[in-house]
Amino acid sequence: MTMRNSNNKFSRGDYFLWAFAVIILVLLFQSGFFTAEAWQDFGRRFYQNFVYQERYMMLVNGLRSTIFMTSFATLIGLVVGVIVSVIRVAHEGGVHIPVLNAIANCYVAALRGTPVMVQLLIWNFTVFASARDLNTQYIAILAFGLNSGAYIAEIFRGGIGSIDRGQMEAARSLGLSYGTSMRFVILPQAIRNVIPMLFNEFIVLLKETSVAGYIGIDDLTRAGQNIQALTMEHSQPLLMVALIYLVIVMFLSSLVRRLEKYLSRSKRG
């Protein structure tokens, strides 16, 4: 599609171009771009930072770790989020589950009310303090997963709330139980409505995992810092890390926009 969206000043492609241009300009300016000497210096440092001893592999492995953590944390978040939201919605809908509902409410309040980094540190240094054999990546996945579960629960609650209550009534009027109606009538529609928001949650999480380095995980951010430590170079590694995040996030955002367009077009009323 080459048609421009009249609401936006720039098309998607323009945004990409501008973002690249800005990043590259920053890179160039801080290296004193305009002298031949600076050019050589830039090249030499680039070589030192990314090429020498295959240091780019540190970034590749870091990215792999970031994506690995983000993906599995999102999966955990999805499962936990659906369960928690269904508990809360069912409670509001008159199903008698006060204890479960209280637990769900505490969970959402606690995990949304504290910084994810504090949660990560607590999981690592308090809850699993004695489990030193455990791969810290799994601890991070758990921490990020449960954190995003609280947010996804709210997303789902909104999604379920957006379904006309007549849908539940129609299902119940046929003799279906609350649970069966929820599973076959309400949830499929709610999930469909919140798919774009779930992708956004994935994008948010991708960025949030950048604090994983605090418990010693060599994620993408930490990989940049590791290169810094090796080369005593402060700008290029982190700018490169930022560039990688930016490209991935912009790519995923464009997918979300496309998905939204598709879902709204084929929405069935």
């Binding site: 006309d164 009534e169 129609a170 009027s173 076959f184 529609q189 069935r268």
Partner: peptide, 27 residues
């Protein structure tokens, strides 16, 4: 009891994510 008492609503409330056939056979 509701299995034996059908209900038809003002606003139909067909299940929009299911085909006509699935709407009828679900219950």
């Amino acid at each position: 009891i509701r299995r034996h008492i059908g209900m038809v609503f003002q606003h139909f409330y067909l299940f929009p994510h299911l085909t006509v056939q699935q709407n009828i056979t679900l219950a």
